[in-house]
Design a protein around this nucleic acid. Structure first.
Length: 225
DNA sequence: GCATTAAAGAGAG
DNA sequence: CTCTCTTTAATGC
């Protein structure tokens, strides 16, 4: 299993929470629904809850000195955010923003999460496992960023997109982009200009094809190098 | 960095 | 609610 590096894997930690969720949690804390561009929290907000993405997608980032937005990651279904709260962080260092409509978030108060981690073994095991996996992905991502050129980084990024959010289409895979080229540029450590040029190259080489601005079609994943 | 084009938003019918 | 005009944002060179 070699899952995405740039977009975090979509697994069902959700399942793990379900037994708990449906008992008493859901009644008192229904899922919150966010629309595109709604913020879950901002930089510097006090940390009160950890969040579980039940549906949709969330962007994590911060603003640099010049006020430019810097994207760190996109999180999909099953991913946790704000989990550093469990290690004592009390202010968010990043903002979290929904990038899809109907993004459903299950919120869990920090104390509750700690209680759950203590009393409910599967929950705590899953947390541990996921931190390990996340570490592994970060290592791989770091290696790609350090040792590959911009073109390879973009290619790896697109491949991961295919794995994570791709749907079969004709002979290959289709991806619906909910992010812009500057977001991609930030994620792979390239300039927006480079990303734009590289995409044009890849399209000319027939490795990818764009439908409008929102969809990429990859005819053959193997041939994408 | 600027020109083109697409998407989002506002306003009218 | 839907169509169209205006504004804003994304892309490509």
């Amino acid at each position: 299993m070699n899952k995405g590096v740039w977009f975090f894997e979509e697994v069902d930690l959700y399942d793990i929470l379900c037994p708990y969720k449906y008992n008493d949690h859901l009644k008192s804390h229904p899922l919150s629904c966010y629309n595109k561009t709604d913020f879950l929290f901002m930089e510097g907000d006090p940390v009160r809850e950890i969040y579980l993405v039940a549906e949709g997608r969330v962007k994590i980032g911060f603003y640099d000195k010049e006020g430019n937005e810097q994207v760190i990651a996109f999180l999909g279904r099953g991913e946790i955010l704000g989990e550093k709260a469990l290690f004592g962080e009390n202010r968010h260092k990043e903002f979290a923003q929904a990038v899809a409509d109907h993004t459903l978030i299950c919120k869990l108060r920090v104390e509750k999460a700690q209680e759950l981690a203590r009393d409910y073994v599967p929950f705590s095991l899953t947390l541990t496992k996921r931190f390990g996996e996340r570490m592994g992905r970060l290592e791989r991502r770091l290696q790609i960023l350090l040792f590959k050129d911009a073109r390879q980084r973009l290619v790896e990024f697109v491949k991961d997109l295919c794995r994570d959010i791709g749907t079969p289409y004709r002979t290959g895979v289709k991806i619906t982009l909910e992010i812009t080229q500057s977001d991609i540029a930030a994620l792979i450590g390239a300039s927006r200009k480079t990303v734009s040029l590289l995409f044009t190259d890849l399209e000319e080489a027939g490795m990818v094809k764009f439908f409008g601005r929102k969809e990429i079609y990859v005819p053959n994943l193997e041939a994408l190098v």
